[in-house]
Design a binder for these strands. Structure first.
Length: 430
RNA sequence: UCCGGAGUAGCUCAAUGGUAGAGCGGGUGGCUGUUAACCACUAGGCUGGGGGUUCGAGUCCCUCCUCCGGAGCCA
């Protein structure tokens, strides 16, 4: 018996093969039964003619229900009438298990219902395509940083205190002590960069904010590179090369999936380096020119980000925000100490921020004063201050949100579909 | 936490204050090439919970619950 995956069938025309999978859909006409079988690699139509098979096999073709698990044996044939152009002319059907009425029908459903059945929803073709593109983005990310001499250094999930002291964190009991789920691996990557020169981490991060928007999850994945002897300019160059790399990789390797998602690839093809770089002040000018009621000194809201990115056909990098609205570890611009040497990358098509980063404060006394000014407990940051005590160097890095990036590239407006099992304010199951 | 919206069949949705409905899905039957097949028949309901107004409430009022979208926060 020759067992093949459905994606390989076009190379075995005329041969008798067995495919193993699940019933995707079923149609019939008189003495013909059309079973659409999916196996994770693709979907193939199988044809059973009553006159060609035993009574038991024909009966099996009637009895299988949506998502029942089956093995089908038959001859591979080219046929224009079959979706995909290839079909399997059935000789034998083996039923592994008959599924009772499947909750997800081929018609439309609401997002809450689908999320309640996320474990089954993953079997549908669009969700499938998103998972594969997510995988490709992660693979391309690793390839990119590995090839640039970055060392993968895993950051801890349990942390003793707030990394940045701004957002609300999930608190857990750690043998009678308070511990928090990490909101960023950055501080640890700074330590790693001082050890290996260039480091990155990729892992889950947690925010206990009660956000209910298409851009937010309570648990999301970030990739965070950090490099010693790097300034803001170098950081922006790294960020644009990285983002361009993953977009090109998906365009090259995941054409089929983008097609399944009906993604217009023209905006993705426009993503070429260099990306435009504008200062916060210039971005504010754009908003005011467009007549948006934006107050200088504030951070940009979602409509502001959209208005700024509308001016460009590729991601735009906005740098040098007011230091007052940024985290304590940001280095101030020597040319204007009211500004921070930071950068946000805004993706086009109304997606908004996918990257936040910048150059870190590398002077011991300045950092100490900043920790104090932000009302953070110095004791919790003693190890972090050590990095400025023992061989401090200029260094920079950034964090990229994987789900937002997947959403942008897939053209999926809501990040909840960009992670296998999303965790949101009102969603802890499945 | 704030501002909007929605809860009716397994799902997606209809229903002037006057007998609870359709499509899909399920079941049964029909059709020798179906394409989210089609045709016929069929089962399926405490209209989110509680209270009120009314001769009469899915519909109007109060309240609670759940969810959705957005804001803030950020990736």
């Amino acid at each position: 018996m020759h067992i093949f995956r459905i994606s390989e069938l076009s190379r075995h025309i005329g041969q008798e093969v067995t495919v193993r999978g699940w019933l995707y859909n079923k149609r019939s006409s008189g003495k013909l039964r059309f079973l659409l079988v999916r196996d994770g690699s693709g979907i193939v139509q199988t044809v059973t003619f009553q006159g060609d098979v035993s009574e038991a096999v024909f009966e099996a073709s009637d009895r299988v229900t949506q998502e029942s698990s089956i093995s089908v044996t038959g001859k591979v044939a080219e046929d224009k009438r079959s979706p995909g152009g290839v079909e399997l002319q059935v000789r034998d059907i083996q039923i592994h298990q008959i599924a009772p009425e499947y909750p997800i029908s081929p018609k439309e459903h609401g997002s809450a219902f689908l999320m309640d059945h996320r474990h089954l929803w993953l079997r549908s073709s669009k969700q499938h395509a998103i998972l594969k593109i997510r995988h490709e983005i992660i693979r391309a990310s690793r390839d990119f940083f590995d090839s640039q001499g970055f060392v993968l250094v895993d950051a801890p999930i349990f942390t003793p205190a707030a990394c940045e002291g701004t957002t609300t964190l999930f608190e857990t009991d750690y043998f009678g002590e308070k511990a928090f789920l990490t909101q960023s691996g950055q501080l640890y990557m700074e330590a790693a960069a001082m050890a290996v020169g260039r480091a990155y981490c990729f892992g889950p991060t947690f925010r206990a904010e009660k956000s209910k928007t298409r851009r937010h999850l309570t648990e999301f994945w970030m990739i965070e590179p950090e490099a010693a002897f790097m300034d803001l300019e170098g950081d922006m160059e790294l960020a644009e090369n990285y983002v361009a790399h993953i977009v090109h990789r998906v365009l090259d390797e995941r054409k089929e999936e983008l097609k399944v998602l009906e993604r217009d690839t023209a905006p993705l093809e426009a993503v070429q380096t260099p990306f435009p770089r504008i200062s916060y002040d210039e971005a504010v000018r754009i908003l005011h020119e467009k007549g948006l009621p934006f107050e200088y000194g504030n951070d940009f809201g979602a409509p502001d980000e959209t208005a700024i990115s509308e001016n460009y056909d590729r991601p735009v990098m906005v740098h040098r925000y007011p230091a007052a609205i940024k985290a304590f570890y940001m280095k101030k611009d020597p040319a204007d100490p009211t500004k921070a040497l930071c950068v946000d990358m805004l993706a086009p098509e109304g997606v908004g921020e996918i990257i936040g980063g910048g150059q870190r404060e590398d002077d011991y006394d300045t950092l100490l004063a900043s920790i104090d000014k932000h009302g953070l407990p110095v004791s919790a940051f003693e190890w972090y201050l050590d990095l400025r005590k023992y061989g401090s160097v200029p260094h920079a890095g950034f964090g990229l949100g994987i789900e937002r990036t997947v959403g942008w590239i897939c053209g999926t407006p809501h990040v909840r579909e960009c992670i296998p099992f999303p965790r949101m304010m009102h969603r802890l199951t499945p």
